[in-house]
Design a protein around this nucleic acid. Structure first.
Lengths: 339, 339
DNA sequence: GTGAAAGCGCTAACAG
DNA sequence: CTGTTAGCGCTTTCAC
């Protein structure tokens, strides 16, 4: 491992001068710069970022913490954020929060965060106590639906409004028995599924319709396979179901397979709407109608907020933003007004 | 920022004792341990991992470098690796290599690697010069199809054999005009697409059949949309096509949508096989027949090799492994022997 | 334009 | 069981 001192010795300068060359500081004469560069090449020197970070206090790196790396949605989000963060001269790294065992997470994982200049945390699957333990000095932007301490910047999707939009569209397209796949009733968890279930209810009541609690199908929305099995069984048991609002696109993909298993056509027999606007949705069956949660908007604002909080002086007041949701109509629903 | 010294002062011990408590070393009396722990809580102390790493030389972290975070395949791989690495007491972070601009990548990104105890590099989209510049001291396992310096451990998929399996299955199921979607002829790039095209050829010649170079459809395999458009156009232009071997599942999903656009049924009119065994494939159309590249096997071996190389003394000889590919039969193909 | 000194926060190695 | 000393590789600060 060659250090700055080896280079300095070979180039016959001080370590400080080498440091200046490495950091492309202007106050070095061309002649010495050449000598130093030559020495660096000869010794195959590479800067030690750990040491630099310890001394300078910054790493040029931002972390994105997601519950699972294999959720397609987070893959899309990560890619978008990596591009946006990279454009501002920083690096993004992605970590999965749910991998480590409980104990680890609380203690070590928290310390890990402080190795970064800032962090973007998906609070899904993160305990509130953990979030609260984050020191105020670390620039953090929170992502997700849980109620969080107000001192943090927070960007969330329009879960309720989006779900209202989705369900409303189904009702306006003539559906009367809209099952919510991956729904969740009551305040068990105040998470994403609960919020989307609320939107589903609101769409009904706004039209003077009552919801049937038996239409809440509480399968794990992330597992397409579970949605598939549950939906197939449900529509067979209750033939009156004429539409599905699935709380995620992944659930919707499973659900559409389940409908095929049960011999139902989409959208003729049963209409389907998802949520997330995954790129792949356009190519599933007749095309999956879905809710675009406003990812571009989210990414743009997350990066803006984080950048602001990493600057000095950081803003004092935290912002709490809600991204605008938008209906993306495709073939899995009929056209509004048509029955 | 409270340090170990603040804690030491409050607890009236030396910094070393605090360090021992933090690291759960046994040689501390219960009484002092209590005092130290109390002080830590009172001051809200958290260890600085950067400093620890500089001093101890290890970070407990392994990096996975992928070309794009939004490729579903890499999401699956990342999740599996995170679990496997976590089980051995380390942490996985994922970085996207193609985000940063050229210059950055060569210089800074390389230095970044050395912040980790080890790295798993997907060489897709990585220049050979860059790979070569990696110092021998960093434990690295390479992933992917490019020819790489033999000094590295290297785990690859059976691209050729897998593609042969896929194409062979189509031929055995009665297909005679098998188009390869996302294929690539000639030694332009010796990457994954080329290898899979080779397997496609080999399956033909093994059966005494000639390949028609016009059946190589060179769309970007990752973009489902491109595969969709290209396939739809191709099967309309050439009605003799009776099967598609798609170089990735994502391409296959797009291709199946393209077939639907063109009014072809799967598998009656045209059979389809993909490659990657994405979880979602089971729920697309009649179920996507695909090649399982042996992800479990890959993950297991990658972690084993990396762990070995991080140990001391590290092994001297590099291993070069090829994962066994396996055909996963689903509804997008007919049964072998049936015409 | 260049260098010397100091120290970021922590732990290895050795004493006691 | 506890403490002292030294220093990881770099950059900040100040001096020349």
């Amino acid at each position: 491992m060659t250090t700055i001192r080896d280079v300095a010795r070979l180039a016959e300068v001080s370590t400080m001068t080498v440091s200046r060359v490495v950091n492309a500081r202007p106050q070095v004469s061309p002649a010495t710069r050449e000598r130093v560069l030559a020495a660096m090449v000869e010794l195959d020197y590479h800067v030690d970022l750990t040491a630099r970070q310890l001394r300078s206090g910054s790493s040029g790196t931002v972390a994105l913490i997601v519950p699972r790396l294999d959720h397609v949605y987070f893959g899309q989000l990560g890619a978008q954020l990596a591009d946006a963060v990279g454009k501002r001269g920083r690096h993004l790294v992605v970590e999965q929060s749910s991998a480590s065992r409980e104990g680890e997470l609380a203690a070590l994982s928290l310390a890990r965060l402080h190795m970064y200049d800032g962090a973007i945390l998906s609070v899904v699957g993160l305990g509130n106590t953990e979030v609260n333990r984050i020191r105020a000095t670390l620039p953090v932007v929170l992502l997700g639906e849980k109620p969080v301490p107000r001192r943090f910047d927070h960007v969330m999707m329009s879960n309720v409004a989006g779900a209202r939009l989705a369900t409303g569209h189904l009702l306006d397209c003539g559906a009367r028995r809209v099952m919510i796949v991956g729904g969740e009733f009551g305040p068990v968890s105040r998470g994403m599924r609960f919020a989307r279930t609320t939107g589903w209810e609101e769409a009904h009541s706004a039209r003077g319709l009552a919801v049937d609690p038996r239409l809440v199908l509480s399968s794990d929305p992330i597992k397409a396979q579970m949605a598939r099995t549950a939906v197939s069984r449900a529509v067979t048991r209750d033939p009156s179901i004429d539409a599905l609002f699935c709380v995620t696109d992944e659930a919707a993909i499973g659900a559409m397979a389940g409908l095929a298993d049960a011999g139902r056509r989409v959208p003729e027999d049963i209409q389907v709407v998802g949520f997330d606007n995954l790129a792949i949705g356009a190519h599933i069956g007749p095309g999956l109608t879905t809710i675009d949660p406003g990812n571009d908007w989210i990414v743009e604002n997350v990066v803006r907020l984080l950048e602001a909080r990493m600057s000095s002086p950081p803003p004092t007041a935290a912002e709490h933003l809600v991204a605008p949701a938008r209906l993306v109509e495709r073939g899995s629903t009929k056209r509004a007004g048509v029955r």
